[in-house]
Protein backbone atom coordinates (compact mmCIF):
# COMPACT_ATOMS: atom_id res chain seq x y z
CA UNK A 1 0.00 0.00 0.00
CA UNK A 2 1.34 3.42 -1.00
CA UNK A 3 0.01 6.68 0.38
CA UNK A 4 0.26 9.61 -2.02
CA UNK A 5 0.39 12.95 -0.22
CA UNK A 6 -0.68 16.19 -1.89
CA UNK A 7 -1.14 19.84 -0.94
CA UNK A 8 -4.94 19.89 -0.50
CA UNK A 9 -5.75 21.88 -3.66
CA UNK A 10 -7.80 20.48 -6.52
CA UNK A 11 -4.92 20.93 -8.98
CA UNK A 12 -2.60 19.23 -6.49
CA UNK A 13 -5.04 16.33 -6.33
CA UNK A 14 -5.11 16.02 -10.13
CA UNK A 15 -1.30 15.97 -10.11
CA UNK A 16 -1.41 13.16 -7.57
CA UNK A 17 -3.80 11.21 -9.83
CA UNK A 18 -1.36 11.67 -12.71
CA UNK A 19 1.45 10.26 -10.58
CA UNK A 20 -0.58 7.23 -9.58
CA UNK A 21 -0.51 6.34 -13.29
CA UNK A 22 3.07 7.56 -13.79
CA UNK A 23 4.51 5.39 -11.02
CA UNK A 24 2.06 2.57 -11.65
CA UNK A 25 0.91 2.43 -8.03
CA UNK A 26 -1.65 -0.31 -7.82
CA UNK A 27 -2.68 -0.36 -4.19
CA UNK A 28 -2.88 3.29 -3.28
CA UNK A 29 -4.61 5.94 -1.27
CA UNK A 30 -4.37 9.71 -1.64
CA UNK A 31 -4.50 12.13 1.25
CA UNK A 32 -3.47 15.64 2.25
CA UNK A 33 -0.36 16.54 4.18
CA UNK A 34 -2.53 17.56 7.10
CA UNK A 35 -4.46 14.34 7.30
CA UNK A 36 -1.50 12.05 6.64
CA UNK A 37 -0.41 10.00 9.61
CA UNK A 38 3.03 8.46 9.42
CA UNK A 39 2.75 4.73 9.63
CA UNK A 40 5.79 2.45 9.71
CA UNK A 41 4.12 -0.20 7.58
CA UNK A 42 3.21 2.18 4.81
CA UNK A 43 5.25 3.60 2.00
CA UNK A 44 4.46 7.11 1.09
CA UNK A 45 5.05 9.26 -1.95
CA UNK A 46 4.92 13.03 -1.86
CA UNK A 47 3.34 14.55 -4.94
CA UNK A 48 4.17 18.16 -5.75
CA UNK A 49 1.75 20.29 -7.72
CA UNK A 50 2.63 20.30 -11.40
CA UNK A 51 0.50 22.33 -13.73
CA UNK A 52 1.18 20.22 -16.78
CA UNK A 53 0.34 16.93 -15.07
CA UNK A 54 -2.87 18.34 -13.59
CA UNK A 55 -3.91 19.76 -16.95
CA UNK A 56 -3.34 16.43 -18.68
CA UNK A 57 -5.58 14.57 -16.26
CA UNK A 58 -8.28 17.24 -16.64
CA UNK A 59 -8.03 17.16 -20.41
CA UNK A 60 -8.19 13.38 -20.41
CA UNK A 61 -11.32 13.50 -18.29
CA UNK A 62 -12.89 16.09 -20.56
CA UNK A 63 -12.73 13.56 -23.36
CA UNK A 64 -14.37 10.89 -21.21
CA UNK A 65 -17.15 12.63 -19.29
CA UNK A 66 -19.48 15.60 -19.75
CA UNK A 67 -19.04 19.10 -18.33
CA UNK A 68 -21.79 18.38 -15.80
CA UNK A 69 -19.92 15.29 -14.58
CA UNK A 70 -16.66 17.25 -14.35
CA UNK A 71 -18.45 19.75 -12.18
CA UNK A 72 -19.73 16.91 -9.99
CA UNK A 73 -16.16 15.70 -9.51
CA UNK A 74 -15.04 19.17 -8.44
CA UNK A 75 -17.96 19.59 -6.08
CA UNK A 76 -17.35 16.21 -4.47
CA UNK A 77 -13.72 17.25 -3.98
CA UNK A 78 -14.83 20.45 -2.21
CA UNK A 79 -16.73 18.34 0.34
CA UNK A 80 -13.32 17.79 2.03
CA UNK A 81 -14.69 14.51 3.36
CA UNK A 82 -12.15 11.99 4.60
CA UNK A 83 -11.45 9.36 1.98
CA UNK A 84 -13.08 11.36 -0.83
CA UNK A 85 -9.79 11.44 -2.76
CA UNK A 86 -9.77 7.65 -2.95
CA UNK A 87 -13.34 7.55 -4.21
CA UNK A 88 -12.56 10.23 -6.80
CA UNK A 89 -9.52 8.21 -7.88
CA UNK A 90 -11.70 5.12 -8.33
CA UNK A 91 -14.19 7.16 -10.34
CA UNK A 92 -11.41 8.57 -12.55
CA UNK A 93 -9.82 5.15 -13.06
CA UNK A 94 -13.21 3.70 -13.98
CA UNK A 95 -13.82 6.57 -16.41
CA UNK A 96 -10.43 6.06 -18.12
CA UNK A 97 -10.85 2.28 -18.26
CA UNK A 98 -14.18 2.34 -20.10
CA UNK A 99 -14.88 3.25 -23.68
CA UNK A 100 -18.37 4.61 -23.08
CA UNK A 101 -19.06 7.33 -20.53
CA UNK A 102 -19.65 5.98 -17.02
CA UNK A 103 -21.08 9.11 -15.48
CA UNK A 104 -24.62 7.78 -15.27
CA UNK A 105 -23.68 4.34 -13.95
CA UNK A 106 -25.47 4.72 -10.64
CA UNK A 107 -24.91 1.02 -9.99
CA UNK A 108 -21.17 1.68 -9.53
CA UNK A 109 -20.40 2.58 -5.90
CA UNK A 110 -17.78 5.27 -6.67
CA UNK A 111 -19.96 6.95 -9.29
CA UNK A 112 -22.99 6.97 -6.99
CA UNK A 113 -20.95 8.33 -4.06
CA UNK A 114 -19.48 11.12 -6.18
CA UNK A 115 -22.93 12.09 -7.46
CA UNK A 116 -24.49 11.98 -4.02
CA UNK A 117 -21.65 13.95 -2.44
CA UNK A 118 -21.78 16.53 -5.23
CA UNK A 119 -25.48 16.86 -4.46
CA UNK A 120 -24.74 17.51 -0.78
CA UNK A 121 -22.19 20.15 -1.71
CA UNK A 122 -24.62 21.71 -4.15
CA UNK A 123 -27.20 21.92 -1.38
CA UNK A 124 -24.73 23.69 0.88
CA UNK A 125 -23.85 26.07 -1.95
CA UNK A 126 -27.54 26.79 -2.38
CA UNK A 127 -27.94 27.30 1.37
CA UNK A 128 -25.15 29.84 1.36
CA UNK A 129 -26.81 31.68 -1.51
CA UNK A 130 -29.88 31.80 0.72
CA UNK A 131 -28.43 32.35 4.21
CA UNK A 132 -25.61 34.80 3.57
CA UNK A 133 -26.61 38.05 5.32
CA UNK A 134 -24.72 41.20 4.49
CA UNK A 135 -24.22 44.04 6.94
CA UNK A 136 -23.43 47.44 5.53
CA UNK A 137 -20.37 49.07 7.06
CA UNK A 138 -19.73 52.81 7.35
CA UNK A 139 -17.48 52.81 4.31
CA UNK A 140 -20.00 51.17 2.02
CA UNK A 141 -18.83 47.56 2.17
CA UNK A 142 -21.42 44.78 2.41
CA UNK A 143 -19.86 42.27 4.77
CA UNK A 144 -20.96 38.71 5.63
CA UNK A 145 -19.48 35.92 7.74
CA UNK A 146 -20.31 32.23 7.26
CA UNK A 147 -19.15 28.78 8.28
CA UNK A 148 -20.35 26.45 5.53
CA UNK A 149 -20.23 22.68 6.07
CA UNK A 150 -18.23 22.32 2.86
CA UNK A 151 -15.76 24.58 1.12
CA UNK A 152 -18.30 26.28 -1.13
CA UNK A 153 -17.01 29.84 -1.52
CA UNK A 154 -15.43 29.00 -4.91
CA UNK A 155 -18.89 27.83 -6.03
CA UNK A 156 -20.93 30.86 -4.90
CA UNK A 157 -18.62 33.53 -6.25
CA UNK A 158 -20.32 33.80 -9.62
CA UNK A 159 -23.80 33.99 -8.14
CA UNK A 160 -22.97 36.94 -5.90
CA UNK A 161 -20.93 38.67 -8.56
CA UNK A 162 -23.75 38.77 -11.09
CA UNK A 163 -26.34 39.64 -8.48
CA UNK A 164 -24.54 42.42 -6.63
CA UNK A 165 -22.68 43.89 -9.56
CA UNK A 166 -22.93 47.46 -8.25
CA UNK A 167 -21.89 47.03 -4.60
CA UNK A 168 -18.61 46.12 -2.90
CA UNK A 169 -18.98 42.93 -0.88
CA UNK A 170 -16.94 40.52 1.17
CA UNK A 171 -17.95 37.02 2.21
CA UNK A 172 -15.71 35.52 4.88
CA UNK A 173 -15.51 31.82 5.77
CA UNK A 174 -14.45 31.94 9.41
CA UNK A 175 -13.98 28.18 9.58
CA UNK A 176 -11.51 28.01 6.71
CA UNK A 177 -10.09 31.47 7.39
CA UNK A 178 -10.43 33.05 3.97
CA UNK A 179 -12.89 35.19 2.12
CA UNK A 180 -13.94 36.36 -1.33
CA UNK A 181 -13.99 40.07 -2.01
CA UNK A 182 -15.64 41.90 -4.91
CA UNK A 183 -14.51 45.44 -5.68
CA UNK A 184 -17.13 46.12 -8.43
CA UNK A 185 -14.80 44.73 -11.08
CA UNK A 186 -13.46 41.35 -10.06
CA UNK A 187 -13.64 38.80 -7.26
CA UNK A 188 -10.49 37.96 -5.33
CA UNK A 189 -9.65 35.47 -2.61
CA UNK A 190 -8.47 37.32 0.49
CA UNK A 191 -7.09 36.59 3.95
CA UNK A 192 -8.23 38.93 6.71
CA UNK A 193 -6.35 40.41 9.62
CA UNK A 194 -8.82 41.70 12.16
CA UNK A 195 -8.51 44.79 14.29
CA UNK A 196 -8.32 44.83 18.07
CA UNK A 197 -10.92 47.57 17.97
CA UNK A 198 -13.50 45.04 16.82
CA UNK A 199 -12.35 42.28 19.17
CA UNK A 200 -10.96 40.23 16.31
CA UNK A 201 -13.91 40.87 14.04
CA UNK A 202 -16.41 39.55 16.58
CA UNK A 203 -17.82 42.96 17.36
CA UNK A 204 -18.23 44.91 14.16
CA UNK A 205 -21.26 46.91 15.38
CA UNK A 206 -19.13 50.03 15.81
CA UNK A 207 -18.13 49.88 12.14
CA UNK A 208 -21.68 49.68 10.77
CA UNK A 209 -23.57 52.17 8.66
CA UNK A 210 -26.03 54.26 10.68
CA UNK A 211 -29.05 52.70 8.96
CA UNK A 212 -27.86 49.10 9.21
CA UNK A 213 -29.54 48.30 12.52
CA UNK A 214 -32.82 49.83 11.34
CA UNK A 215 -32.94 47.48 8.36
CA UNK A 216 -32.06 44.50 10.53
CA UNK A 217 -34.93 45.40 12.85
CA UNK A 218 -37.31 45.90 9.94
CA UNK A 219 -36.32 42.47 8.64
CA UNK A 220 -36.88 40.89 12.06
CA UNK A 221 -40.28 42.56 12.21
CA UNK A 222 -41.15 41.30 8.75
CA UNK A 223 -40.05 37.78 9.60
CA UNK A 224 -42.28 37.79 12.67
CA UNK A 225 -45.28 39.28 10.86
CA UNK A 226 -45.41 36.80 7.98
CA UNK A 227 -45.59 33.84 10.33
CA UNK A 228 -49.04 32.23 10.69
CA UNK A 229 -49.33 31.09 14.28
CA UNK A 230 -52.24 28.74 13.54
CA UNK A 231 -49.90 26.76 11.24
CA UNK A 232 -46.93 26.49 13.62
CA UNK A 233 -44.61 23.70 12.51
CA UNK A 234 -41.32 23.83 14.37
CA UNK A 235 -40.00 20.58 12.94
CA UNK A 236 -40.35 21.84 9.39
CA UNK A 237 -38.89 25.21 10.33
CA UNK A 238 -35.74 23.60 11.73
CA UNK A 239 -35.50 21.09 8.91
CA UNK A 240 -35.29 23.95 6.40
CA UNK A 241 -33.24 26.27 8.59
CA UNK A 242 -30.93 24.09 10.68
CA UNK A 243 -29.84 25.64 13.95
CA UNK A 244 -26.17 25.77 13.04
CA UNK A 245 -26.91 28.63 10.63
CA UNK A 246 -28.92 30.71 13.09
CA UNK A 247 -26.05 32.70 14.55
CA UNK A 248 -25.51 34.40 11.20
CA UNK A 249 -29.19 35.20 10.59
CA UNK A 250 -30.51 38.48 12.02
CA UNK A 251 -34.09 37.20 11.86
CA UNK A 252 -33.19 34.46 14.36
CA UNK A 253 -31.35 36.84 16.69
CA UNK A 254 -34.36 38.63 18.17
CA UNK A 255 -35.31 35.25 19.71
CA UNK A 256 -32.65 35.76 22.36
CA UNK A 257 -34.60 38.69 23.79
CA UNK A 258 -38.01 37.09 23.91
Amino acid sequence: MVTVIYDGTFEGFLTAVFEVYEYKFSSVNITTKERFQQNVFNNHHESLFNEEKAARVWKGLTAKISAAALSQLYKAFLSEETGMEDILLKYIQYAFAKKQTIESDYSNAAVLTVIQTAKKVYREKHRMEAFIRFQLTGDGLFYAVCQPDFNVLPLIEKHFKSRYADQRWLIYDSKRKYGIYYDRFKVETVQLSFDEKTNNGKNIQIMLDEKELLYQQLWQQYFKSVNIVARKNTKLHIQHMPKRYWKFLPEKQSDAFR
Binding site: A130, R163, A165, R231, N233, H240
Partner: peptide, 26 residues
Protein backbone atom coordinates in the same frame (compact mmCIF):
# COMPACT_ATOMS: atom_id res chain seq x y z
CA UNK B 1 -30.47 38.92 -16.07
CA UNK B 2 -28.41 41.62 -14.49
CA UNK B 3 -27.64 44.32 -17.06
CA UNK B 4 -25.47 47.44 -17.09
CA UNK B 5 -23.94 46.64 -13.72
CA UNK B 6 -27.29 47.09 -12.05
CA UNK B 7 -28.66 45.48 -8.92
CA UNK B 8 -30.03 41.97 -8.90
CA UNK B 9 -30.47 38.95 -11.07
CA UNK B 10 -33.62 36.87 -11.33
CA UNK B 11 -32.55 34.15 -13.72
CA UNK B 12 -32.52 30.51 -12.83
CA UNK B 13 -33.62 28.74 -9.68
CA UNK B 14 -35.58 30.40 -6.92
CA UNK B 15 -34.09 30.88 -3.48
CA UNK B 16 -35.85 30.62 -0.14
CA UNK B 17 -33.92 32.99 2.09
CA UNK B 18 -35.65 32.09 5.32
CA UNK B 19 -38.41 29.90 6.70
CA UNK B 20 -41.00 31.14 9.15
CA UNK B 21 -41.84 29.17 12.29
CA UNK B 22 -44.75 27.61 10.43
CA UNK B 23 -42.18 26.14 8.02
CA UNK B 24 -43.14 28.24 5.00
CA UNK B 25 -40.52 29.72 2.75
CA UNK B 26 -39.70 33.43 2.67
Amino acid sequence: KNENKGLGDAKGVGICHAYTEDGRCV
